[in-house]
Computed example of a mutant assay.
Amino acid sequence: MIDWDDAFDNSTYVPGSDQLADRWGGQAAAYRATAGELDLPYEAGARNRFDLFRPKGAPKGLVVFIHGGYWQMLDKSFWSHFAAGPLSQGWALAIPSYTLAPEARLGQMVSEIAAAVTEAANHVAGPVRMIGHSAGGHLVSRMACSDGPLQDRLDKVVSVSGIHDLRPLLGTKMNDTLHLDAAKAEAQSPVLHPKREGLNATFWVGALERPELIRQTRLIAEKWQCPNVFEPDQDHFSVVEAISRPGSPLLTELLKD
């Protein structure tokens, strides 16, 4: 039998991962102290807020970053410094928080992210790109499905280390918090939905990640017939930091036409 708890256990297999939240939070707070329009509302919930960072001059478009944390941890305040990458290339960046489990079920989170990207797009003209990591990778893939938002403006998503088939989560302790059943897991699994026609999607994962995350990436890339990248020497956490670095392969993929 597959030990699904172990299959999705990213932190144990990355030395020093328990220190990352503090490091990212400190970097984000320092960046946020000098830039950004903070706590803009998109719905009425306590966590229904996003931060918006703009480049100098008129933005080329909007990037929306959706954070991970297995749908039950973290918020927008850990990632502000990621704006340095998109802003260096002339793009604005929005980072929303969303209601987490167990307060919210995944269907509510999907609805909130759709509302967040729609409202953020009201603040910035031009094309919209989405990038998400881990659970956020699932959520941006869900936005790329045929029933996703901004059909006229969302033209590309990059899912980093995403989970695209939720059915294995039914066999994890994590599901004590997520409260998925078979029907909900199927309804919110991007791999079981068609991709929206005309939208570009790329699936990205660190080559040093857990085999299940690599399998999930390959699975949806094959189903949707989209590019997938297995980035050498990157683990589940290091792979996403490249968003903040001008010229990184990940950022280049996100912003290229």
Results as ranks from 00 to 15, higher is better:
3 D>M: 06
4 W>L: 15
4 W>F: 15
7 A>V: 07
8 F>R: 06
8 F>A: 08
8 F>H: 08
11 S>D: 10
13 Y>W: 07
15 P>Y: 03
15 P>S: 12
19 Q>S: 13
19 Q>C: 07
21 A>H: 10
22 D>Y: 09
22 D>G: 12
24 W>G: 06
27 Q>K: 13
29 A>E: 14
29 A>S: 13
30 A>F: 01
31 Y>C: 06
31 Y>Q: 07
32 R>Y: 00
32 R>N: 05
32 R>A: 15
40 L>K: 11
44 A>K: 12
45 G>S: 11
46 A>H: 12
50 F>W: 02
53 F>I: 01
53 F>K: 08
59 P>K: 05
66 I>Y: 03
68 G>Y: 03
68 G>T: 04
68 G>V: 00
70 Y>C: 05
79 W>L: 06
80 S>M: 02
81 H>Q: 14
82 F>W: 08
88 S>K: 13
88 S>V: 08
90 G>C: 07
90 G>T: 10
93 L>R: 10
99 T>Q: 10
100 L>F: 07
100 L>K: 10
101 A>W: 01
105 R>C: 01
105 R>T: 10
112 E>L: 02
112 E>A: 07
135 A>D: 03
138 H>W: 03
141 S>K: 03
142 R>Q: 15
145 C>Q: 07
152 D>T: 13
158 V>D: 05
158 V>M: 05
158 V>E: 00
159 S>R: 04
160 V>P: 02
161 S>M: 00
162 G>N: 07
166 L>A: 10
167 R>M: 08
172 T>D: 01
178 L>N: 03
179 H>S: 12
179 H>A: 14
182 A>I: 06
187 A>W: 00
188 Q>F: 15
189 S>M: 04
190 P>E: 05
196 R>M: 01
199 L>W: 03
204 W>Q: 10
211 P>I: 06
212 E>W: 04
212 E>N: 09
213 L>V: 00
213 L>F: 15
219 L>S: 12
220 I>N: 13
221 A>Q: 04
221 A>W: 00
227 P>H: 12
228 N>I: 01
234 Q>G: 08
238 S>F: 01
239 V>R: 02
241 E>D: 15
244 S>V: 04
245 R>F: 08
245 R>D: 08
247 G>N: 13
247 G>K: 12
249 P>C: 09
255 L>K: 14
255 L>E: 12
